[in-house]
Amino acid sequence: MLVSTAELAQHLTDPAWVIFDCRHDLMDTAKGRRFYQESHVPGAHFAPVDTALSGPKTGRNGRHPLPKPETFADFLGHHGVTAAKTVVAYDDVGGQYAARLWWMARWIGLTQVVLLDGGLPKWVADGRPVSAEVPRPTPAILPARLSDRSLWRVTEVQKRLGDSRSLVIDARAAERYRGETEPLDPVAGHIPGAANRFYKANLRPDLTLRPADELKREFTALLAGRKPEDVAHQCGSGITACANLFAMEYAGLPGSNLYAGSWSEWVADSARPVAKG
């Protein structure tokens, strides 16, 4: 699930590896592309979060709704991805955007998908090369074969409210979860019954992922006997939720679900309950 900077450096010219730069900023949505154009891992393609990793917004389906599986498969195929290739994703903030690409690639049936541990900051700190050259893709045909990777729609979340056997894990910062501040969405608070685990709790100071045994111990305590299959991850818009989902799977707790609409979809309907504190 993870690749080190040393291992990726050995595969920079390997045609069987396809690299994606997923850098993004929710407050400055053009920043990721600007940074990519300035420098990136040599050979990496840019994966824009607002288009390639998201679908059309309706005003009721959240800030980053999933695109159609076929649309995402076409994006990856345009950049040369096939089922036989290894896909590597990275960003510069500990994997929250890269994990979204990882989850989506697995969602459409790919299995050889990894994150660059520590992302671009670790790559640069280790003295690896960067480039401003934009690679020319060699397109391939990639069909979308939806895997059994699970999604919870908003109706599923509503149905499970109050069910002690189920759990929603909110990946947002604690002050947003508690409803003390909300910089992005019109309503502050959290889904009633949701537990809070800020996705950065999974990271070391250098943005590499913490050891699997530590993560397993902490997630197991949070689950309190629940099965991963009865857990859904959410955040503001279904992005950082993927980082917690990735960490759980890396820790040996596979099978949890993504609530892709997340908080921004939840509060689009004022009839849905909101908790604070």
Rank of each mutant, 00 (worst) to 15 (best):
V41F: 08
V41L: 13
F72C: 07
H64L: 10
I141W: 13
G62Q: 01
A194M: 09
S264M: 12
Q37Y: 13
Y36I: 07
Y259G: 03
L116K: 11
L184M: 13
T5P: 13
S262I: 09
G109L: 08
L116T: 08
A16I: 04
A251H: 04
E180F: 03
K216Y: 08
H64M: 10
K85E: 01
L120Q: 01
R145M: 03
W102S: 00
R210N: 05
L184P: 06
V157K: 00
L203Y: 06
S54A: 11
P56I: 06
A243E: 07
D21T: 11
Q234K: 02
R34T: 11
P186D: 10
G238S: 03
A224M: 09
A173Q: 14
G32D: 00
A144N: 14
A247T: 05
I108M: 13
L209V: 15
A224I: 13
G127I: 10
V113C: 09
Y259V: 14
D117V: 04
Y97G: 00
Q10V: 13
L207I: 13
G179I: 06
L53K: 03
A243P: 00
L161F: 01
A52S: 11
Y259I: 06
R106D: 15
R60F: 09
A188C: 14
L223Y: 10
L203P: 04
P254W: 03
G225Q: 07
S237K: 03
S262Y: 03
S237A: 15
L184H: 11
Y199G: 02
T138W: 01
R165T: 09
P48D: 14
N196P: 06
S39Q: 15
S54L: 01
N202G: 05
A251N: 08
L110G: 01
A212K: 13
W103I: 04
M104Y: 12
D213C: 09
G55H: 10
F20S: 08
D213G: 05
A247H: 02
F35E: 12
S166G: 12
P56L: 06
S164M: 08
G193F: 09
H64I: 11
P205H: 10
S39D: 14
T82S: 06
R226F: 11
N196R: 04
L223H: 09
R60Y: 08
N196F: 00
R217P: 03
V114W: 10
V134I: 15
V114K: 08
K159M: 15
S150R: 15
F75L: 00
V87K: 14
R100E: 00
D28R: 06
K31E: 13
Q96S: 15
S262W: 00
T240E: 08
H24M: 05
A201K: 10
A84Y: 06
T71F: 05
P192D: 12
Y90K: 07
L222I: 12
S54F: 02
